[in-house]
């Protein structure tokens, strides 16, 4: 059953993804061309462990952001952001703040979802690959903004906690083509791990705010 479902799903996604382009370009030619490109892409890879070919199928947000000219389409930007925000699943217990020490471990770890990773082990968020966080860690990247003093400058209100949780859960809700993975949406982190990272950013005791 699963084997039949996946190709059907893939075909659907292809049509859904490229449908919008077909309306603005020469209808038939553009659509066929893009599907052909997608097929070509799939021919370039083989499944390895947890990384199957279905990973190459784009959702609407991925497809939209693969065109370097995406910034021009203001209407679709807000439509996709709205749809991504609606996708955020907030914690049932209404609590956003976990344990900042556990959050630091999640922020340091870069494993997870690579075909070389053990799918039985929890993934990390690899925050330090792109962001500065605690002053103790000097080995940080610069693809994302510095998050040093994140909580100190923003306060620790429930609104900020809620926003921070949602931003980690689905970064696209606030910035449609953000470089940041959608940690909740894409099942990279668990709810508890996200809460722990929120605590790393917002807890007044966290070194991020010291």
């Amino acid at each position: 059953m699963k084997k039949i479902l996946i190709p059907a799903f893939m075909a659907l996604m292809v049509f859904a993804s490229f449908g919008a382009q077909a309306q603005t370009r020469s209808p038939v030619g553009a659509q066929v061309g893009d599907i052909e490109a997608m097929r070509e892409l799939m021919r370039g890879f083989k499944p390895n462990g947890q990384a199957g070919l279905s990973r190459l199928v784009q959702d609407e947000a991925q497809q939209f952001c693969s065109d370097p000219g995406w910034t021009r389409d203001k209407a679709r930007i807000s439509a996709i952001e709205k749809q991504q925000l609606a996708d955020v699943k907030f914690p049932a217990d209404g609590k956003f703040l976990g344990n900042w020490q556990a959050g630091e471990r999640v922020a340091q770890s870069g494993v997870g979802k690579q075909f070389s990773d053990n799918p039985g082990q929890p993934s990390g968020a690899n925050c330090y690959a792109c962001h500065q966080l605690t002053p103790q860690e000097l080995s940080f990247g610069t693809i994302g903004p510095s998050l040093r003093n994140y909580g100190k400058t923003r306060g620790n209100t429930e609104a900020i906690q809620r926003y921070t949780y949602a931003k980690i859960y689905n970064s696209r809700a606030y910035s449609v083509c953000s470089n940041m993975p959608r940690f909740g949406h894409s099942d990279i982190l668990t709810e508890q791990q996200i809460k722990d990272v929120v605590a790393l950013l917002l807890d007044p005791e966290s070194p991020v705010n010291k």
Partner: peptide, 20 residues
């Protein structure tokens, strides 16, 4: 084709070559 692949975002992390 190579240029298209360079900007192609996909996978659980939404990464493309262009991300980095």
């Amino acid at each position: 084709m190579g240029q298209k692949v360079f900007y192609y975002r996909g996978g659980p992390h939404d990464f493309a070559c262009a991300t980095c």
